[in-house]
Design a protein around this nucleic acid. Structure first.
Lengths: 220, 220
DNA sequence: CAACTATTCAATAGATTTATTGAATAGTTT
DNA sequence: AAACTATTCAATAAATCTATTGAATAGTTG
């Protein structure tokens, strides 16, 4: 094997793995699986893809060794193979947000059209926790909270928030978080909370970002 | 715009940028441009692609806003748009190395077939520098050294190494580095140095990795 | 072991990606 | 302004990717 052949092989393999990521639906699936493992049917519902199509995309991710498979009763569950997969997705996500004005614009436009609220970064939240009373609210589906959540956070999935408002202390500032910067549960939650008289902001990033930074979590 | 349309747009844009990366030649080009800007002709020579083909790949990268273009006399120079591009490439590279056994095997096999020498990580080099006499040797082409290099490193491009050996102190351990983990200039240099009676090892990663970690550099 | 069900497979058509070829272009130099 | 040269463009054929459809499969449950 000469130098050229060596390079062709290495970059070729890396391109193969990158191709497995290079599809809108597969990126969405990875963003979802970063929260918790899910069955094909659940992934299909969440993404709006047909079962067969969802399965095909999952096969692509599996062939590229980006996800692991386990059977759970009648269902087959997929999960991210390891944290490097999330790291790569995060790097691409940040490249997109910082580099492509279009993406930043889409996100800002969508949020501002409906929810005109400030957000807080992870660093800012860490300071808030250190220096005062903050209630951290996880508005993701309960399975995801159970799989892992920010230490001392409270779980109220967004669909239940309206009826469970009384569980939240009115004197504390509330920071709502969800899956990541493209997840709007947190925005919707903040809108609802502010309307009900709470002081609330969303966390810009999501639980997987917090976890990756080595900050305190509770895992299952 | 509803939630589904929003997600389709965001993940769609991110897939577009990922697609721009998802090609062996374009990854190689990015790995090269992480060292220094280069003209189309130079990129063409280094990668073994035809001029027209090189240009087409560069257009893809340009459209995705991953590279910037400047004219320099008769030549047109391309460079990485910002450090997020290198970060994304690094994340993909590390995902590949840690996740895909094939890649690790290709790299190890190729190196071991020719050069059976130990390597040193960036962290280890930092310790070595702090605690003793080390000579850091940059064996990349001189342009790349001029663009930026590890602080206090010496430049001897690999082609000139055989005739310039006397410039190196024989009592120090020598750590040779080049572009990154897939660059074999450093392996070839170590082979040559050890044969000539020096104590030498290669640095596993490359200059851009060192730079990204915020370690001391000299830039131009 | 038969029935059931979640998931996968296979086939296909339309869309996209890629390398090659040769011509066109834009900017510099003389 | 003409000549030159590095780069880009346009056209094309082969290869690859994608969503859809309907059938097949494997594993669980009763």
């Amino acid at each position: 094997m000469n130098k050229r052949e060596f390079k062709d092989k290495v970059y070729g393999e890396l391109a193969t793995i990158t191709k497995a990521l290079a599809n809108p639906h597969r990126l969405e699936i990875i963003d979802l699986l970063a929260q918790s493992d899910y069955s094909v049917e659940q992934i299909s519902t969440q993404t709006g893809l047909s079962m067969a199509n969802t399965s095909q995309h999952l096969q692509v991710l599996k062939t590229a060794q980006l996800v692991d498979v386990t059977r759970n009763g009648n269902y087959i569950h997929y999960k991210l193979a390891d944290s490097n997969v999330f790291k790569a997705w995060k790097a691409l996500r940040e490249l997109g947000i910082e580099r492509i004005a279009t993406i930043d614009k889409i996100v800002k436009d969508f949020r501002q059209s409906k929810f005109k609220f400030e957000s807080v970064t992870i660093d800012e939240l860490v300071h808030k926790i250190a220096s005062g009373k903050v209630t951290i609210l996880d508005v993701r589906p309960e399975v995801e909270y159970r799989t892992g959540h920010i230490a001392d956070s409270i779980s109220i999935p967004f669909d239940e928030l309206a009826t469970r408002l009384k569980e939240l202390p009115k004197r504390n500032e509330i920071i709502a978080y969800c899956r990541g910067p493209f997840c709007v549960f947190a925005d919707e939650a903040v809108a609802l909370l502010v309307k009900a008289g709470y002081k609330a902001k969303r966390l810009e990033e999501g639980f997987p970002d917090w976890h990756l930074m080595g900050l305190p979590v509770e895992l299952n």
